[in-house]
Design a binder for these strands. Structure first.
Lengths: 338, 338
DNA sequence: GTCACGTGCTGGAACGTTCCAAGGCTAGAC
DNA sequence: GTCTAGCCTTGGAACGTTCCAGCACGTGAC
């Protein structure tokens, strides 16, 4: 059984410092109201007894919990995991500076709204961070309808009613970077291996490839592919396109890029020297296999999310425009000859 | 600005149902005290107005927050991340069933104790989960001294004073599995590539390799290596050992196993067919590169951690023995010929 | 000397819940 | 009919904080 002594309260500190409760409270929250010598004395006692305000009491009275809710989706093993991890780390780190903490919760996988309602009604969190606002997810609209503060990582693709703070990474720019890099390496027939048309993110990235190709006045017919996110599908698609003269590939994911590498092995071709390959997301796999890859600035995204959260909680209206951050290209052996 | 109507409280529900506050409270917390018809009526009103108890108030009065603290360390890019991710997902998922949620916090990287104290003194969390209790980390002893409830993922290697609930994965068994598998494949000179002697986890895994080898009466001289966790170090160590006749390798990490694969490429040898390789942790890299690997049952660890947490919070004394779970071996092409 | 004012501090009230002691009511025993 | 017991329900108190109104005191203006 736990036998610790009860933590000191405002009253404890107050009586030891010879002042009232309220004065101790002010010492912490409005120090400018105290005479310097009183302030010193009170802070001294606070330090001495190791007083820390009780969160529940503070939350009950003041109405905010200093907690940010984040629904942590059931894991799909793969790169998405690792991305989330990088994002989450910076999120935790930068909320520390605003005095907030991250509350992870889960919900019924069948119901994308499960969990939010409870936290909201029990006033357990001050705001939410959304991380999966691809087209069609209802969370943003639902929270917006309830005037619940939140910031989304991911733009509201085709919801004109959406009017909330968001941050996203410019996927088209990433694909453009990758394509331009391959063009610079002298490639002319550069293929695109991306996701199904239903993926807004995938289509966005695809436009980057298209734009870079057309600016360079290179053809794209039969070079673009829409596949499921799967190494084997990519392997086969790569074979087809190499057959019609493709000498390089930009892929919507590292998983697909790995499929291309397999195709090269099967043909006895060397990545980089013979065929250029660039993946997307700079996963551990890319780092280990020497795969060039587009890297999302997840750390910057997290910092920006926290900044917007701060503004939103301070009552600022949602910015007219969301923030779009540019990814970078990490060049490794798979896209340069030598 | 937020213009939502104030959430309903116990009193709201009480007056609408024509009962007292306390009766509504009992309807939720001690329903057996109410007459069935009263219970029905009250629950009806609760559902109708969408009442959810205010967390802060409940926490203030009852003294527990239903929150579990987890210090989320600054990311070191690599496999450790992905491991943590798998663990965390299941942790979040299974705490849902006990009505708890996970509070992530961070702290000064220089001070392994930073953050814990604040949460404890502000009574913000009911307990902690520790995830990095390798030899020499002070968190466990510190929490134990303060009678703070916690469960550790990782055993207290050499602290005889330690007396707390913990769960760990049997690293030696994992290495044994991998070694036995390679022996079955007909290998006799099987090398070990592990970490420095200072790593307790590394030494534990190493004993598994040693034990399997000596049981099969195979020599281990000059076949074991203690390196930094780095593909290039592993690559060089593999070359040396292949030079003295090693035909297979068990590695303490997938990163090292990738180093071995590189060495094989450089020699024109094929993994699986010519030289057997098994990694550790079943990372995304292993999955993509067809690397056999020892997989930690992180999901089971998380479930067990939550179970122990539950017991600890119910006042049960720490079990005499920690729980040690067995890993499994995921066989892929790198360890079987054909 | 009175009044107005600003500074520094105080004490009661309130946030919404659960604990606790006690009240009303019904039923059974005598 | 009275008493006792048990069931269901109630209202006051308390958790520890912050909000708010107000008090005591000293200073300067008239």
């Amino acid at each position: 059984m736990v036998s610790e002594t009860a933590p000191p309260t405002l009253s404890t500190v107050a009586s030891r410092a010879g002042v009232s409760r309220q004065t101790v409270s002010n010492a912490l929250n409005n120090p400018e109201l105290l005479r310097p010598e009183t302030l010193d004395r009170v802070l001294g006692v606070i330090a001495e007894v190791g007083y820390t305000p009780n969160r529940a009491a503070r939350q009950l009275r003041s109405g905010n919990s200093r907690l940010i809710g984040l629904r942590f989706e059931p894991a799909q093993e793969g790169t998405a995991n690792a991305l989330m991890d990088r994002f989450l780390h910076t999120l935790v780190e930068s909320t520390r500076e605003t005095g907030h903490q991250i509350l992870l919760f889960s919900g019924d996988p069948e119901d994308p709204l499960d969990g939010y309602d409870d936290l909201l009604r029990s006033t357990a969190v001050d705001a939410f961070v959304l991380t999966d606002t691809y087209a069609g997810t209802p969370q943003a609209a639902w929270l917006q309808d309830r005037d619940a503060p939140f910031v989304a990582f991911g733009r509201p693709w085709d919801d004109p009613r959406a009017h909330h703070a968001w941050v996203d990474v410019d996927g088209a720019a990433g694909a453009r970077l990758a394509t331009a890099h391959l063009l610079e390496q002298g490639h002319e027939r550069i293929g695109w291996l991306g996701w199904e048309r239903s993926s807004r993110i995938g289509e966005d990235r695809r436009t980057g490839w298209k734009a870079a190709m057309s600016r360079a006045q290179k053809p794209t017919e039969r070079l673009g592919g829409r596949l499921t996110d799967n190494a084997d599908a990519a392997r086969m698609a790569a074979h087809e396109r190499i057959g019609i003269g493709a000498t390089a590939f930009v892929c919507a994911s590292d998983t697909m890029a790995v499929g291309v590498l397999r195709a090269l092995e099967e043909r006895g071709l060397r990545a980089g020297t013979d065929i250029g390959v660039v993946g997307f997301d700079d996963s551990a796999v890319a780092q280990v296999t020497g795969l060039s890859s587009v890297r999302q600035p997840l750390e910057d995204v997290a910092v920006e999310v926290v900044r917007l959260l701060h503004e939103t909680l301070a009552g600022a209206p949602a910015p007219e425009q969301g923030t779009v951050l540019a990814p970078s290209l990490v060049v490794r052996g798979s896209s340069v000859s030598g």
